[in-house]
Design a protein around this nucleic acid. Structure first.
Lengths: 85, 85
DNA sequence: CCCGATTTGTGCGTATGTATC
DNA sequence: AGATACATACGCACAAATCGG
């Protein structure tokens, strides 16, 4: 077992900030249904490894998506795709 | 009851990363038979205290050794030396 | 069956140092 | 000078799994 490699989705030389690129990719996965409502994301350190960025960058991206009501973070449990009402 | 002091095995000023030093020490104990197959390691907070490092550092070391198939981690039970086949 | 202790899982917040743009 | 990003490391709080009384 190994983590899916998502480094190819991030361009470290692009003019767009890394955390925004992570946002874009997570949004795309949610829109495509790869990340369904109520689904739990991998842990922050795991996401950092998958995307090949730091945990700091992952946290910024998550913070943004929480502000957009697309993710919900539960302390000690994990980060989840916002459930359908 | 008191925990064995393993702080002397860790050099906070060495060029080698702390979690790698912990890895080295755990590997040495396994190779020497001090940690036999199926043996349970002390809990993560206890290891952290023994080595004088954070639990985070201990977990990184454990994660590495799991990747090497030398340790097995069981939620709610403990961390064990990989059994012989 | 319930309760508490133990242990791992996860996230929160922060700090330091380095490198790059 | 400042913002962005990385890597490492620390301590803490809360959640979930397991086990024993």
């Amino acid at each position: 077992m190994s983590l899916p490699d998502k480094r190819g989705r991030i361009d470290h030389r692009a003019p767009r900030l890394l955390w925004q690129q992570v946002c874009d990719d997570l949004r795309a996965d949610m829109d495509a249904g790869v990340l369904a409502p109520d689904a739990r994301l991998p842990a922050e350190p795991d996401l950092a490894e998958q995307y090949g960025v730091s945990r700091d960058t992952i946290r910024r991206a998550i913070q943004e998506l929480v502000g957009e009501d697309r993710l919900v973070v539960l302390h000690g449990r994990g980060t989840f795709v916002t459930p359908r009402e």
